[in-house]
Simulated assay, not measured.
Amino acid sequence: MRALIAAAIGLAAALALVSAISAVGSPTGETSPKPLLTTVPGPKR
């Protein structure tokens, strides 16, 4: 029974956190026009 209560409390806390983050929304700003490097650049030839 304690495990069920703990799981319910954890689920409620997770849902509250997701709801709070969704309510705040994404921050305003601009993205960088430069692409990110995903690989190590090799030697220039």
Rank of each mutant, 00 (worst) to 15 (best):
residue 31 T to P: 00
residue 44 K to S: 02
residue 3 A to L: 14
residue 30 E to C: 12
residue 34 K to M: 03
residue 9 I to T: 13
residue 5 I to F: 13
residue 38 T to G: 06
residue 45 R to V: 06
residue 8 A to Y: 04
residue 19 S to P: 04
residue 41 P to Y: 06
residue 22 S to A: 11
residue 28 T to K: 08
residue 22 S to E: 05
residue 10 G to S: 12
residue 33 P to D: 00
residue 25 G to W: 02
residue 3 A to K: 14
residue 6 A to Q: 10
residue 41 P to F: 02
residue 23 A to R: 08
residue 39 T to P: 00
residue 37 L to E: 05
residue 26 S to M: 09
residue 24 V to Y: 01
residue 26 S to E: 10
residue 31 T to D: 02
residue 19 S to M: 10
residue 20 A to D: 05
residue 15 L to G: 10
residue 28 T to H: 01
residue 27 P to D: 06
residue 43 P to V: 07
residue 17 L to G: 12
residue 42 G to Y: 01
residue 45 R to T: 06
residue 12 A to E: 08
residue 26 S to H: 11
residue 35 P to Y: 07
residue 32 S to I: 05
residue 14 A to R: 15
residue 7 A to V: 12
residue 30 E to D: 13
residue 20 A to F: 06
residue 16 A to D: 10
residue 30 E to S: 14
residue 25 G to V: 00
residue 3 A to V: 15
residue 44 K to F: 06
residue 11 L to S: 13
residue 7 A to F: 08
residue 39 T to M: 02
residue 43 P to Y: 07
residue 27 P to C: 07
residue 32 S to Q: 09
residue 29 G to V: 10
residue 37 L to T: 07
residue 20 A to R: 15
residue 34 K to T: 00
residue 7 A to C: 13
residue 42 G to N: 04
residue 34 K to D: 01
residue 11 L to W: 04
residue 34 K to R: 02
residue 38 T to K: 04
residue 26 S to T: 05
residue 45 R to Y: 00
residue 36 L to E: 03
residue 30 E to R: 13
residue 43 P to K: 09
residue 8 A to F: 07
residue 33 P to F: 02
residue 25 G to Y: 00
residue 43 P to H: 01
residue 7 A to N: 08
residue 17 L to R: 12
